[in-house]
Design a protein around this nucleic acid. Structure first.
Lengths: 208, 208
DNA sequence: TGACAAAGTGACTTTCGAGTCATATAATAA
DNA sequence: TTATTATATGACTCGAAAGTCACTTTGTCA
């Protein structure tokens, strides 16, 4: 937890600092990132950082909490979990890409939180738990609607569903970070096409 | 690349050093791992390490090359890729677990290579490429045999297949690292059961 | 067995950046 | 306006660990 002083700051200053930190952690990793650089980038003095956080590790963990929180809020705002089943959710991937685009810094940072299991263990667990809860809900909805097979355990369905979904998202994410620009109409069409094919696989499998 | 001196060492000494390094990197991460500790653990002096490698980073990257190589050799020795299709490969997961057990250090290290993209970029790419080549072969075999649907692109099938497979492997890996002992007969039975269910999903999908 | 080269060593030097703190500035209250 | 408290600053301290090197030991060949 940050010190009181930090929490009393205006939120835009807080955010400036957290985002500067996240940027540094993304492109240097935790150990190589320098507090001094973060401070400069945020437009404050190095000493100030230590008025806000006990040490660099605390800054990192708070970033991860804050980041996850932000991301979830935005995701919640655009997803109507209550009625969706797994397939509907998956089809909405295209929409999620927009969010990833708007919140590129955040997204990149959250990916790299996973590279610091020693520091962000709790945040990581929280992330997975939230994800799992989401998935479970989607699966239950599917079973209720009759769109998801009922003969298999939710746990295993969850593993299956996230396995496919994550892989697909990463596939597009990485292309799209390489281009490091917005998606063209062309690639957007391509994605849509792959999305329907992948959906077929998820529904009917790859066997024949 | 290590210096000549290292390459002239007897292979068992080489291996002792690399394994000590891998152990340190696994449980401290690259930055926190101390060259001095690695040296002590390997039974050599710190100075010697610098006769072998230009610096700590080079030691790490060489570990990742060597590790991947080792792992692949052992995997190749026990998998008969030429005739297998995706489903047969997947069913053999239980067998692969043995390998992970025999080569626990190696496995753990390879997982943590992924946490150092900055250092192990090339190795990581190599790893993915090898994995993809494997998967493509399995898919082609499946299509030829008629066990895999032919109406979908290999690329997408690959993403689907690895998504499911990796998730499943991670699921078992993590349980089994927590127990940090060999698998009991009971959990081995449970795994077998999940394996067949997951195979059904992969073949026929989760829809209905 | 002596002489040259290769490998091994660990005390020492150097680097580097996290974290401190004495001081300055701004905000608030009385 | 002044007193008091909260916030901001960056030159400085200091510990830790990477990397060096002058010297020792081991190995090899004539």
């Amino acid at each position: 937890m940050p010190k009181e002083t930090f929490l009393r700051l205006k939120t835009d200053k807080q955010e400036r600092i957290l985002r500067a930190a996240m940027r540094a952690f993304v492109d240097q990793g935790f150990s190589r990132a320098k507090v001094e650089d973060i401070a400069r980038d945020a437009g404050v003095a190095k000493g100030s950082i230590y008025q806000y956080f006990a040490d660099k590790a605390e800054l990192f963990t708070y970033c991860s909490h804050w980041g996850i929180d932000q991301f979830m809020q935005k995701l919640d705002a655009r997803t109507h979990l209550a009625e969706m089943d797994v397939f509907e959710y998956f089809l909405d991937s295209a929409g999620k890409t927009e969010l990833l685009d708007e919140e590129r810094e955040l997204t990149l940072f959250l990916q790299c939180v996973a590279n610091e299991p020693r520091l962000a263990d709790a945040s990581l667990k929280a992330m997975y738990e939230v994800g799992d809860a989401y998935g479970r809900q989607l699966i239950r909805n599917g079973k209720r609607k009759g769109s998801v097979r009922a003969d298999i355990d939710d746990d295993l369905l969850l593993a299956y569903f996230w396995g496919v979904t994550e892989r697909f998202e990463r596939r597009w994410m990485s292309r799209y970070i390489d281009f490091s620009k917005e998606m063209s109409a062309e690639s957007s069409r391509l994605m849509q096409e792959e999305l329907t094919q992948m959906l077929t696989l998820m529904r009917n499998g790859m066997g024949c």
